[in-house]
Nucleic acid binder design. Structure first.
Lengths: 342, 342
DNA sequence: TTGTAAGCGTTATCAC
DNA sequence: GTGATAACGCTTACAA
């Protein structure tokens, strides 16, 4: 280790300046890679920096710059895997930079949510925040962020905002494709386990299902649908409801993977073979999809890529509007679908 | 500039001081709840603070205090659910405080890991960091943190450190109990899917299995064991290996839930009934355990509670050594276990 | 190309 | 009790 020149604690810019015989400002220029610097000076200072193990204090730097190099991630999402994938994507974007990621889960049913968020945003003074669905679908929430002068990017299942503030998929189209796959297999009664009210993704995915079945002259009546709230338990309940029909569907599209897993679970409990007696399709392609038996046919949401892009839009606001904003999903056929028996 | 209260940007302590006719220091005393303050003065200043919507700038505060109110969470863990549970626990602890959580996933196989961590720690200057297994088991890693003057708490499956720097479970005991449950059901050949080499948890859990079977005079030979790396895929591979034995086990303990899920998956692929033909026990009680079919008997690790405690130990180092350090696991019997057929 | 002086918004010291 | 004044470690004018 390098010997410390001065007192206790980490070396500061002053130590570097003194030891290399230049001014603070010159050291600052070295740190910030200013182009107008004598090569000799630069090397001299860099040598001292290396010897001292000097690292600029980000607090001081951020105070002087009047900006805070941290990105906030705000979510209220029942899907753990999605949250974690998003985190990974953000970290992909900020790796090697001076940015940090601060996560902030919230409860969207908390009546004090807006007050709490206001306090949080005012305190943390983020460079920008990323907001996941379903909170990302709440326009009032972004009015608040605007008022607080906080830059943001929303993640959504449809066109919720302008490209500078949005990373989105097209869930309607994706689901339509998935349901058409079921139709192509010969299914005529296709059930829907839809997501919770108030979720834009739930709405888009339901419409995708509806568009597909009606376009092919198949029934889209309400008796073929059941609502869950994106959890395994409610997926089971929905499955019980649909499989208990006098004339149950031969295939079910569930609005996300864990609900699809719930449906599969219920089918097996009842001694039904999946996919023999019932084909099931999910949405998300989170870890559970490949994990359950049979492996789940689903739609992959490029969460990590979207998250990475969201972070980059915050870090480079000047080009945010021009960067990719719509991200294609991918249909992932697995063993949970086959032609109907009869 | 000294004159305006209505300038761009947020109000500062100076604005508050000027408008309430006191000095900065007095405002600072109000903010920090100094006890030696005239009640009238306090109320006057508080009124101005409320009116202005003033929020202290944490950067400036942290610079002056020479501390950074953020906690780091460092992990390299294949188990997403566990990571997320841990995050939730930390957030439980820091909710309503000025602390923030910064997450930092790493790759333990990266040869440059230590250099990268050194840089990260030097830059972020955390109040303290929490480290998850398996990185938490690497003593050299903590020697580095010590050298950097960074406080830490390790999460582990055994007594890795003194109580001030540790939250731990007793995995050996927990697994021993779980395997004894299998024995009580009548199983005589109990297989083990162990975790990856170099994981203390893998070691402890294997020893728990070994202690249980040998204590009851049952075979603990190596042919009944297979190694995975805590992922679903390797769980499947281990299952293929154990079920392919000429005389396969009637029950398998897998060192975590996702590997157990892999074993169940393979059993079903082979047309075996779980638990009829094969009983399976996992470890962790992450979401997957209740999600697969049949629901998995497992051991619940109180991750969230441990995480909360870890954060509190960092925030209050003075009492860290006296706080709870050992956290009890809980056996969770579900449908994946029954007595053997023959 | 480099240095000087004046902040950034807070807290600590030490008077009054 | 309260208030000048000097830190804290860095950056941005503006000079030189």
């Amino acid at each position: 280790m390098a010997g410390k020149s001065g007192r206790e604690g980490k070396p500061t810019i002053n130590d570097v300046a003194r030891l290399s015989g230049v001014s603070k400002k010159t050291v600052s220029r070295v740190i910030n890679r200013s182009p107008l610097l004598n090569q000799t000076t630069r090397e001299k200072v860099e040598a001292v920096i290396a010897e001292l193990g000097y690292v600029p204090n980000p607090q001081a730097r951020q105070l002087a710059l009047r900006r805070n190099f941290s990105l906030g991630m705000i979510y209220d999402n029942p899907n753990a895997q999605m949250v974690l994938n998003f985190q990974e994507g953000v970290l992909d974007a900020i790796r090697g930079t001076e940015f940090a990621l601060v996560i902030h889960p919230v409860d969207r049913h908390d009546p004090g949510l807006f007050d709490q968020i206001r306090k949080f945003i005012e305190q943390q003074r983020f460079y920008g925040v990323m907001v996941l669905p379903p909170l990302s679908e709440n326009d009032a929430f972004f009015a608040l962020l605007d008022e607080l002068g906080c830059n943001y990017v929303r993640m959504g299942s449809a066109e919720l905002d302008d490209p500078a503030h949005l990373v989105q998929s097209n869930d309607r189209q994706a689901v339509r494709g998935a349901v058409e796959y079921l139709i192509a297999q010969g299914h005529k009664r296709i059930g829907l386990v839809e997501g919770p009210e108030g979720f834009r993704s739930a709405h888009e995915r339901r419409e995708g299902w509806r568009e597909a079945v009606t376009a092919h002259g198949l029934p889209a009546d309400i008796s073929l649908t059941a609502r869950g709230n994106y959890t395994f338990e409610t997926g089971k309940e929905a499955g019980i409801s649909l499989l208990g029909l006098p004339h149950p569907p031969t295939a079910i599209f569930a609005s996300n993977d864990v609900m699809a897993a719930g449906v599969v679970h219920v089918a097996r409990e009842r001694g039904l073979d999946v996919p023999g007696d019932l084909s099931v399709v999910g949405f998300d392609d989170t870890a559970i999809a490949a994990t359950i038996w049979p492996p789940l046919t689903t739609v992959r949401w490029p969460i990590r890529t979207m998250a990475r892009s969201a972070a980059l839009k915050l870090i480079h606001p000047e080009t945010a509007g021009k960067e990719q904003s719509l991200f294609p999903t991918e249909f992932v056929p697995r063993a949970s679908v086959s032609p109907p028996k009869n």
